[in-house]
Design a protein around this nucleic acid. Structure first.
Length: 501
RNA sequence: CGGGGUGUAGCGCAGUCUGGCUAGCGCACCUGGUUUGGGACCAGGGGGUCGGAGGUUCGAAUCCUCUCACCCCGACCA
């Protein structure tokens, strides 16, 4: 049997496979602080590419970046009732501002704060308080702000990238004069996220509206993009909220309109987080480790010099450096090609596996034999075999190859999503779909179920024992009517159901 | 926060039930050599006081008490 880069493999133990991929690819590790992770250079490099590409899309849709404080006065959070209820249980609270030597050595908190500060779990309240000052007239609208920040949600159970107590994200916050405009903004940003997921991450997603039970605390409408991971579970990869006037009323974000009257504004918020890195891992990676879509790979091509002895060292390195120069002169998408020459003093096989496990899309091996023929030996992460080709052919085809890999990853993921999405018309069939064959060792089962349903508490209760949740009500669906498979009531709503992260 | 489990070298583990040689093994690491188009081999070497505190004992990784951390399953969640 062929040796795999990762053990266990996906079908043996998916959660453990995930952890091993993160480790083998050197993306992140647990920190001394419970639930918090250290993002290592290779993992952070992926995030930086996501940031840069998303940021550009935000700017193109008329947003500006700003930065607001990490701390939120407790009283601010208390203003919007649903919002408080949603986040209160997972807030980190700062109550002191000084440490003093204690009686038994060590340090003890001193200087109690008059009002405790909350470490932001999200910034609607602190940003809204500033927006209230910034918005006076209809001429100040729309106000479209984004911030790149860290937030803290004191989760009980964490997993690297997928759910950590502290995570990095962007949060967009906008203010509009009319409901229609705010709704349009909410949907525009949902489209931006879907576009980023599909065209940059090569991850197919379903755009849809959240059910009442899954809505953001304080929102009137929450939209999300949902992706299928390789274990067929759903991952919410981004959300866009229409907040109605709930927050503007709680925070007095109001403006004078054209006829001199005063109106409450309409607000939105939307965000994606470092969870996307987790999504990327679980969408594309295989039993040999990480597989990266070229658009997001920190290095798209690694050049591996094969040096047998000191005599040939200089000529091989010379060839590699000139290859690097010629590659860097080319662009894939907006970016110059990102190249690494790995000249570490390691054995060839070991070095190759290092980059396989880290998901580098293309490896180029260059030894004296290749140089004599003016050729290179090229390996693709998405294919098992390497092939020799002339240096010129490689240089002229490489950008096309990257595009082909990017598209191939998307196609493969889409095929997987389609294969495991099933239309289901009875609760019996639904239960069967989501019940693993072997209860003790569930393994990979189920997928997405597409069903007619009525969004109500009764359905939520029926779903609980199955550990299945409504993921979303897809926005791109044809009008049709049917019967709710849970309640038997007539309905025109179709939803996607799945087990989820 | 409820149920279960685990803490022994950087990582993975054995030893704990039945207390007793200098606390072992694999991988990784360092040195020397042989190798080198593929995740090497041989030899030598460094590194741990057994999660923490207290207790029992002539003697504790091993027994007792307390405590901390992590993992899995629930509940909660981007």
């Amino acid at each position: 049997m062929a040796k795999t880069g990762i053990s266990p493999i996906r079908t043996e133990d998916y959660p453990e496979w995930y952890q091993q991929v993160v480790k083998a690819a050197d993306l992140a590790e647990n920190s001394p602080v419970r639930g918090c992770m250290v993002i290592k250079p290779w993992g952070y490099g992926i995030w930086e590419n996501m940031q840069r590409q998303l940021d550009e899309m935000f700017k193109e849709t008329g947003h500006e970046n700003a930065y607001f404080p990490l701390f939120i006065p407790k009283s601010f959070l208390e203003k919007e009732a649903e919002h408080v209820e949603g986040f209160a249980k997972e807030c980190a609270v700062v109550t002191h501002h000084r440490l003093e030597p204690g009686p038994d050595g060590g340090l003890v908190p001193a200087g109690e704060l008059e009002e405790p500060l909350i470490v932001r779990p999200t910034s609607e309240m602190i940003i809204g308080s500033m927006f209230a000052k910034w918005v006076q007239s209809y001429r100040d609208l729309p106000l479209k702000i984004n911030q790149w920040a860290n937030v803290v949600r004191w989760e009980l159970r964490t997993r690297l990238f997928l759910r950590t107590a502290e995570f990095l994200w962007q949060e967009g916050h906008t203010v509009h004069a009319t409901k229609e405009e705010a709704l349009e903004e909410t949907r525009t940003m949902l489209d931006v996220y879907a576009e980023f997921a599909e065209n940059h991450m090569a991850m197919p997603v379903i755009k849809g509206e959240k059910t009442a039970g899954e809505r953001f605390p304080g929102a009137d409408i929450t939209y999300s993009i949902e992706a299928m991971m390789q274990d067929r579970k759903a991952l919410q990869a981004g959300t866009s909220h229409f907040l109605g006037q709930n927050f503007s009323k709680a925070q007095e974000i109001k403006f004078q309109n054209k006829d001199g009257g005063e109106s409450f504004a309409w607000t939105t918020s939307w965000g994606v987080s470092t969870r996307l890195v987790g999504a990327l891992i679980m969408t594309h990676s295989d039993d040999d480790g990480l597989v990266l879509p070229p658009k997001l790979a920190p290095k798209q091509i690694v050049i591996l010099p094969i040096i047998k002895n000191d005599e040939e060292r200089e000529s091989v390195m010379e060839f590699c450096r000139s290859l690097e120069v010629d590659l860097k002169a080319q662009r894939y998408g907006e970016d110059r090609l990102r190249i690494l020459i790995d000249d570490r003093d390691l054995r060839g096989g070991e070095k190759k596996w290092h980059h396989v496990k880290r998901g580098v899309p293309i490896r180029v091996e260059v030894g004296a034999r290749d140089i004599a023929k003016d050729s290179v030996f090229v390996g693709r992460r998405d294919q098992p075999k390497s092939t020799g080709m002339t240096r010129a052919d490689f240089l002229s085809s490489v950008v096309g190859t990257l595009a082909e890999i990017q598209q191939g990853l998307f196609d493969r993921a889409l095929a997987m999503q389609k294969e495991h999405t099933k239309t289901i018309d009875s609760f019996e069939e639904f239960k069967k779909y989501f019940t693993p064959k072997n209860q003790k060792k569930p393994g990979i089962h189920g997928g997405f179920a597409e069903c007619f349903f009525v969004d109500c508490d009764e359905v939520d209760e029926m779903l609980k024992p199955l550990k299945v949740t409504p993921r979303c009500i897809p926005v791109d669906q044809e009008e049709a009517s049917g019967t709710c498979i849970f309640t038997g009531k007539p309905t025109t709503t179709k939803g996607i159901f799945a087990k989820s992260y």
